[in-house]
Each structure stands twice: as C-alpha cells, then as structure tokens.
Simulated assay, not measured.
Amino acid sequence: MVETKEQVHRLVMEQRKMLSLGGVQDVKSFDENEVLLVTVCGILTIRGKELHVGRLELEKGEADITGGIDSLVYTEHRPLQKKGSALARLFR
C-alpha cells in the first residue's frame, strides 16, 4: 500500500445499509455476516446480514460496504509481541 502523509480514518453510514470508510489499510477477512478491516485506528469488525464489499481501494485507503449493518466494533491494533514464558507475559 502506498502511504500518504497521514491517513485519516473516516466512517460515514447511511441508514445502516451503506458504509463508506477511509483510512483502511487491509482486509483481514470477509463473508456475508462479518467484515474485518485493519484501519489506522485499529481493527474494525463489521457485523450484519448480506454484507458486500462493493469498492475496495487500498492504495487510497477507501472501502464501501453495503448490506444490513448490525454492529461496528473497534479493537486495538498492536504489533505481535515476542513469545516468552507465561510468567513474563503476565507482567507486560
């Protein structure tokens, strides 16, 4: 993906049927009930029914999703940590 100076995360939803996004870096997975996107603000999970990724332009960081959108959930996006002992992982 071509990096711009600074990507801005943008999310516009119309009537819970059309979602337009900016700041999209990657698509982790998608099916008709769930779409997982990596955005500049974390991982975004979109759940619903009959979801369809209509437009995806990762070079621009943009995506359009249509369908019956039920929920949008963000989770923090962290780089993978090195594996260590179970005790060491508890205190990170």
Rank of each mutant, 00 (worst) to 15 (best):
V2Q: 10
E3T: 00
T4K: 01
T4V: 14
K5G: 14
K5Q: 13
Q7S: 14
V8M: 07
R10W: 04
R10D: 08
V12C: 02
Q15D: 14
R16P: 08
R16S: 15
K17L: 15
M18V: 07
M18N: 03
L19M: 08
L19W: 01
S20K: 12
L21C: 04
G22S: 14
G22K: 07
V24N: 05
D26Q: 10
D26V: 00
D26K: 02
K28Q: 12
D31C: 04
N33Q: 13
E34L: 12
L36E: 13
L37N: 04
V38H: 14
V40L: 09
C41I: 07
C41F: 03
G42W: 02
G42S: 07
T45K: 14
R47D: 06
K49Q: 10
K49C: 04
E50Y: 03
E50M: 06
L51I: 03
L51S: 03
V53N: 01
V53F: 03
V53G: 05
R55Q: 10
L58R: 00
E59S: 10
E59D: 11
E62M: 12
E62K: 10
A63F: 02
A63K: 01
T66N: 01
I69T: 02
D70S: 15
L72N: 00
Y74K: 03
T75H: 07
H77R: 14
R78M: 12
P79K: 11
L80D: 11
K83C: 02
G84Y: 06
G84T: 13
S85C: 04
L87M: 09
A88I: 10
R89M: 13
L90I: 07
F91Y: 05
R92H: 13
